[in-house]
Simulated scan of single mutants.
Amino acid sequence: MTTARTTTRTARPRPAGEQDHRRLATAARARLPELVRAAVGAITGGVGPVDAPAVTAVEAAVLAGIDAVFADAPTPAAARAVLKGVGAQERRAGRGLERVESAARLASRAVWRRLTAIAGELRVPPVVMVSTVDALFAFTDDLVDAAREGHDSVTEPSDPRRAELLALLVTPGPVSDLERRAADARWPLPERVVAVVSDLPFRVEPGELDPRILANTDRETTCLLVPADVELPQELAQELARGRDTRFAAGLPMPVAEAHRSVEYGRRLLDLVERGSLPPARLTRGCDHLVTLLTAADGGLLRWIREDNLGPLAQLSEGRRAKLLTTLALWLRHDGDAREVAKRVQLHPQSVRYRVQQVKDLLGDQALEGEKRFLLQLALCTRTRGR
């Protein structure tokens, strides 16, 4: 859904120190293998092994960079074509551009370090290096833009295997041969996924989303699966809504084989929004509303916990009960720090201790210890949320 940048940067201003500039350029071309080794080593260490075709591409990019940086020339069309091809290849393999972008940045920094060392040997003035580094990183940006153009240019046909895999994963039940099915669907298998569900059907066009997102592009759908490590921006939901009043919810991250559980949490979030228990939003994220999800899981059990742990306070007047509950909640939150609680309720610390003792007298001395303490906190938390 990104817009390709089709313009190529124009020639950079020629740096100061013309003679030193030419000496550095000549030395860089003469030591091209050294620069390539540095770039490949950086990519291998930061991204992963580099195969022979990739080494050839790196060598071409480094040579093109020397020409562009030291000859005041635009990024060569041939170099852009190579990177466009790399971007397209990544898209066809079902990957985003993260690896390409990381490789380009790592290689650029490695080449810069080697150029700095060469400049030191030649005693090239720092002013020349300042303009050189600006040009080098501008060239790197050009290559990344070219890769992005290639990535965005690939229009993938609808693949029924991805739709079949999505349907299988969002349905409760065992999933057999998951790795093989994911490979057949050209879906890079993540460790965990987040289900994004909607209250109205929406359409995903082939090639519209990051290929790491599993979606049905054959027909309208109400669910897609997003790897847990992929950022899910609000703008995605806005764009998928196509101007309609569609609401989306992102369930909790789950192992891929349990993706249906993330779907269930997403549906529960939409229901909570519909009932007014959560504020309306284009995209509601489960990780932002864990307590609400918990308290909605079993209302009957939570009511019993509240009655069992707070029931003795029902005999008090409403005003006195409210004061004790407020003090108790703060006491638990601040681990019994009477001075901190006193600041919050504008009382003397001794008055806070007196109120807490009243609670103990009503609920029992063990009410603030161990499991009883946890249940008491749960009862107070769900009470303040109107559960």
Rank of each mutant, 00 (worst) to 15 (best):
Pro13Cys: 10
Gly17Tyr: 06
Arg23Asn: 10
Arg23Ala: 14
Leu24Ser: 04
Ala28Gly: 01
Ala30Arg: 11
Val36Glu: 04
Val36Ser: 06
Arg37Val: 07
Arg37Gly: 11
Arg37Trp: 04
Thr44Arg: 15
Gly45Tyr: 08
Pro49Leu: 08
Val50Phe: 00
Leu63Lys: 10
Ala64His: 08
Phe70Gly: 03
Pro74Ala: 02
Ala78Cys: 04
Val82Ala: 04
Gly85Thr: 08
Arg92Ser: 11
Ala93Gly: 14
Ser102Ile: 07
Ala103Ser: 11
Arg105Asp: 13
Thr116His: 09
Val124Asn: 05
Val124Cys: 11
Pro125Ile: 08
Val130Ala: 12
Thr132Ile: 05
Val133Tyr: 05
Leu136Ser: 04
Phe139Ser: 04
Asp141Gln: 12
Asp141Ala: 15
Asp145Ser: 14
Ala147Arg: 03
Arg161Glu: 11
Arg161Ser: 12
Leu165Arg: 05
Pro172Val: 10
Val175Pro: 07
Ser176His: 13
Ala185Ser: 08
Arg186Gln: 12
Leu189Met: 05
Val194Trp: 04
Pro201Val: 07
Val204Met: 11
Glu208Phe: 10
Leu209Tyr: 09
Asp210Glu: 13
Pro211Arg: 13
Asn216Glu: 09
Asp229Ala: 12
Gln234Gly: 06
Leu236Trp: 04
Leu236His: 07
Ala237Asp: 02
Arg244His: 14
Arg244Glu: 11
Thr246Asp: 05
Thr246Pro: 04
Ala249Glu: 09
Leu252His: 00
Leu252Glu: 07
Met254Tyr: 03
Ala257Asp: 15
Glu258Leu: 15
Ala259Trp: 02
His260Ser: 13
His260Thr: 03
Arg268His: 09
Leu269Lys: 01
Arg282Pro: 06
Arg282His: 03
Arg285Ser: 09
Val291Ala: 14
Thr292Pro: 08
Ala296His: 13
Leu301Met: 11
Trp304Leu: 15
Arg320Gly: 01
Lys323Ser: 14
Leu328Gly: 00
Ala338Gln: 12
Ala338Asp: 10
Gln346Thr: 12
Leu347Ala: 15
His348Asn: 15
Tyr354Ile: 09
Lys360Trp: 02
Asp361Ser: 14
Leu363Thr: 02
Glu369Arg: 13
Leu375Thr: 03
Gln377Asn: 09
Ala379Trp: 03
Ala379Arg: 01
